[in-house]
Amino acid sequence: MVSVAPMRLFRWWLFFLLLLLPLGMLVEGLLTNDLGADPAKYIVKELGFWALCWLWLTLAVTPLRKFFGWRWLMAYRRMFGLYAFFYAVLHLLAFATFLLGWRWDMLMTELTKRPYIVMGSLALLLLLPLAVTSTQKMQRRLGRRWKKLHLLIYPASLLVLFHFVWQIRSDFFQQLIFAILLAILLGYRLYLKRRS
């Protein structure tokens, strides 16, 4: 019989490496010069995409736990959330560095002229306090207020969705998928709340 601890350790590392994988692949692509003719844009897009995925994954923890009874999943929610934040920060840094070259004048134009960039920035701003208060110590210290504070993930996720949808050129397949997923993830919570 396998004892619980190695199993948990194995899972932790599995998730840790799995969520790190897209970043690893970007770095590998960068080193082997295999990111296409516009690596700057590609990196920014990929980091944004995975930040979105991990945010949705974070939001999926509660529904999955309640629906399938996967209580063990709770232990990884913080990791998922922090990964979402980590990728989002890299996404912003890559945007400012690779696409804008830290030109402040352009940063200002982008912020005023590209509404979806405002949406994305706001989302990241909302996620910042969540990342900062993600430690167990902070959780204990804040008590009931911690839970309230972390409700910010809902408006943040809606902003992220708008950030994504607002960039549709012609094909909206991905956006539709993520919108439906978010509707399910948030809708399930509303359903549970109504029932109780």
Binding site: A37, D38, P39, A40, I43, T97, F98, L99, L100, G101, R103, M106, T109, E110, K113, R114, P115, Y116, W166, Q167
Partner: peptide, 23 residues
Amino acid sequence: VDHPRWSQATERRLPSSLLTPNI
């Protein structure tokens, strides 16, 4: 005349390098 969703005042001339985008 900007695109409604972005500025057209500048462009990135490709190829550009990561640390010095060719704006």
